[in-house]
Design a binder for these strands. Structure first.
Lengths: 228, 228
DNA sequence: CGCGGCTTTGATGTTCATCAAGTAAAGTGG
DNA sequence: CCACTTTACTTGATGAACATCAAAGCCGCG
């Protein structure tokens, strides 16, 4: 199979890498690998060596930390077209976070030294790439701070709206993660995640059936979110 | 005064900007401005336009958010040789955080489009710059997560050790910020900051006299920090 | 000298985690 | 495919951690 073509026609590529010549694109093409992961599979282990840049084409993944003797902590959820991995990529030798698939997914692995070479030689690419990856880190910081200024109902509202607006673009969707994972993402106990969801159901703000969520009163949910 | 020379001989410069030619350095020199701020002065207002890159030469500054109707929230404290401002610089049009001096300080303002031009034209500079600024963001994320896994005593221990190890390099120092600002930095109430400090004093871990801190039992403090 | 902000301590109440206990769902091996 | 085990989910009760309220002393500053 002609890998260069595979890469050039990739519908995702244009969104990810701007300002590249055909020749540069070909360089990426021969230094990339597309891999598939099943829901639940671990993609990157914390502490392993960094030598590839990951680009999510399809599915959802979570970035998380697992410290010994502590429960896991989810840092963020990435959706298709997102760059995976924060800036640690450029300031560390080893992976700072683990990454796992929370839906079946397709990921493009590009050799990091190729990316670095392109940054070195193509200034416009460098600037654009920098801009994109920095937006990711910036948003993680903002979200972290935001969440901790809110109490439990506000945090659950955040999560419900996050999936509705940011991931599924619908008021009706199926949660890709467990209650426990929600708890790890917004720093609360699993029991309280369930409790607040039940409250929202009783207050007729949402419908729940297992993993399936339907937002019945969006306005009210947004009010809970903004009022903390 | 010959600004190029001023810049070339600047003791801070070499640490900040690597891989620049004399000519490129001169470009920075004529597009920079050194400014002084008194303790308490606001350096950057949230929401203002970004057109300069800030480099802290002397003193300490705080990065913070002030949302209406909420108390301020401090994101990080920067020390000399630190790049100020997170990645928002490259992904936003407007400042995302405010910056204020918590000690008298000297800051070098460099036109952002000059930095961008250098990133575009000098690949090695780009990579090095990228690495440095990403380390800052990375550390902010880590610290945020870290702090929220700890309870109050662990957070105060963090702050005391932060100033001891990271800023003053001494077990004896004068706190540059108020109890209220400590509270805003590690997300707790001002009263509890004071309470925990008093506890530490009673337990003979530290001595306090106004803003002055002396760490008497470093080992114990570090244990409190790691055990959360 | 008096006012406002910072600091301190105590008392009170709320939010939340933890514990316990039970049900449902989803893997696993014979 | 069914018994078995484990993991996810759910609700209630309890207690701990923490914020908030209140009141008073302190300090710097106009």
């Amino acid at each position: 199979m002609d890998q260069e073509n595979t890469c050039k026609v990739c519908v995702y590529r244009s969104r990810a890498f701007k300002n590249l010549t055909d020749k540069e694109m070909a360089l990426i093409a021969i230094n990339r690998e597309e891999r598939h992961f099943k829901k639940g599979e671990i993609i990157v282990e914390e502490g392993s060596k960094i030598d590839e840049f990951l680009y999510l084409q399809k599915g959802l993944v979570k970035l998380y930390n697992k410290e010994p003797h502590r429960k896991e902590h989810i840092i963020s959820i990435a959706k298709p077209l997102d760059f995976i991995g924060l800036l640690g990529l450029f300031s560390n030798q080893k992976q700072v976070h683990s990454i796992a698939a929370i839906e079946d997914c397709t990921i493009c692995f590009v050799k990091l030294n190729v990316i670095k070479e392109l940054i070195r030689t193509n200034g416009n690419f460098a600037l654009d790439f920098f801009e994109k990856i920095s937006a990711v880190s910036d948003s993680v910081i903002k979200t972290r701070i935001n969440i901790h200024t809110k109490q439990l109902r506000g945090r659950i509202a955040y999560i419900l709206l996050f999936f509705a607006h940011h991931i599924y673009n619908s008021k009706s969707y199926s949660l890709p993660i467990s209650r426990k994972e929600i708890a790890e993402l917004i720093d609360m106990s699993t029991e309280n995640v369930i409790r607040v969801l039940s409250e929202f159901r009783k207050d007729d703000i949402i419908e729940i059936e297992g993993k399936h969520i339907l937002i019945k009163n969006l306005q009210r949910l947004e009010k809970i979110y903004t009022n903390g």
